[in-house]
Structures are given as structure tokens and as C-alpha cells.
Amino acid sequence: MKYLVMVLGTQADYESMRGKPSAGAPVWSEQELQAMYAHMSAINDDLSESGELVDANGLAEPARTRFVSAGADGKPVITDGPYGETKELLAGYWVLECESLDRVTEIAARVAQCPGPEGLTDYPVVIRPILEGAGEI
């Protein structure tokens, strides 16, 4: 079965990686950033080697988000990305083909062990099964 494994973050988290701290988002040192990248790369390498990796990407900061919805008049309403106080949004994801929910949970637990600076907000890693047919709803 395919699963979407998601990591969350806020605009403040992205800014803290660039040296601008805030509550729950301390500044990352270069060593901490490199440790995070190495942790995620090792996971990606292992998933690729096991054949479970379908796709994976980190996403640009929430400030570069655009929301498009239908207005009352039927015309699109376009809103640029959220501001720093916005709740967490998707920061990155994996699409995995795993034999069981237990296996993908094991992978998510490994993702959750990602190193970071002291005081960093601890977001859950979210697992969602991907529906593969219309009858699965």
C-alpha cells in the first residue's frame, strides 16, 4: 500500500534556519543544519535501496504559498502565503510503498528522531494512506 508521510513546519521554523529565532524556533547552527540534512539523506538512501521510496521532497517556506479558492461570484480568490504566526503547514513529504502500516510507522518514528537545536518545537510526523481506487473512500 502507498502512504504519504508528512513533516510539518511554520514560517518561523524556516526563518530560524536562516538565523532569525522566535519562540519554539531557535537558531540553527551550521552543524545542526548539516546533521538534519544528513539524517534525512540517510533515510532517503535507505528507502531508495529498499524499494519503498516512490517520491520525496522538502517544500519551500510557507511565505511562498499561494491559496486559490472559488469566490461567491465564481471567480478565483487568490491569497498569498501565510505569515509567521500561521499554524504549521506541510514542510516536506515522502510517498512510500510499504507492506504494512507497522512498517511505515517505523519509518515515521525514524523521521521524528531528526536532530535539531535545543528548544525546537516537536511536530508529529503524519501518516496518511493513499487511496488507490475510487471504491476505497
Rank of each mutant, 00 (worst) to 15 (best):
G51V: 08
A70I: 15
R66S: 01
A91L: 01
A35P: 10
E61S: 13
L8K: 05
V7I: 12
N57P: 00
A108E: 09
P26Q: 04
D80F: 04
K20C: 04
A12I: 01
P115L: 11
L4M: 14
S22R: 02
S48A: 13
M6S: 06
I137R: 10
M17H: 04
P117T: 10
H39Q: 05
A72G: 07
D102N: 08
E49H: 12
T65R: 06
P62L: 04
P62M: 02
G58A: 11
P26V: 01
S16G: 15
D122G: 00
D45F: 07
S48V: 07
L8W: 07
G133S: 15
G51F: 13
D80E: 14
A134Q: 06
A63Y: 00
E97D: 15
A70C: 14
L131G: 09
A12E: 12
A63W: 00
I127Q: 12
E132I: 12
L131Q: 13
Q113F: 03
G135N: 08
D80K: 07
V27S: 15
A109Y: 05
Q31W: 01
V5K: 05
G135Q: 06
G19D: 06
V54L: 15
E30L: 11
V27D: 09
L89P: 01
G84K: 10
I107P: 04
L8C: 02
L8P: 01
N57G: 03
P129Q: 14
K20Y: 05
A108V: 06
D80I: 03
R103S: 03
Q34R: 11
A91R: 01
D55F: 15
Q113N: 13
L53G: 03
M17W: 02
D55K: 11
S41D: 15
V7P: 00
E118M: 06
S29Y: 11
S50T: 09
R110I: 12
G119N: 07
V95P: 03
V27R: 12
I137D: 04
P82G: 11
E32P: 06
V111T: 09
A56I: 05
D73I: 10
A12C: 05
T65P: 00
E49D: 15
Q34K: 14
N44A: 08
P62K: 02
M36C: 00
I137M: 06
A70E: 11
D45S: 09
K75V: 14
G84N: 06
D45V: 09
P26H: 01
G58T: 02
R66I: 11
G92C: 02
D80H: 08
M6G: 03
Q34F: 06
L89A: 14
A108Q: 12
V68C: 04
S48Q: 13
S100G: 12
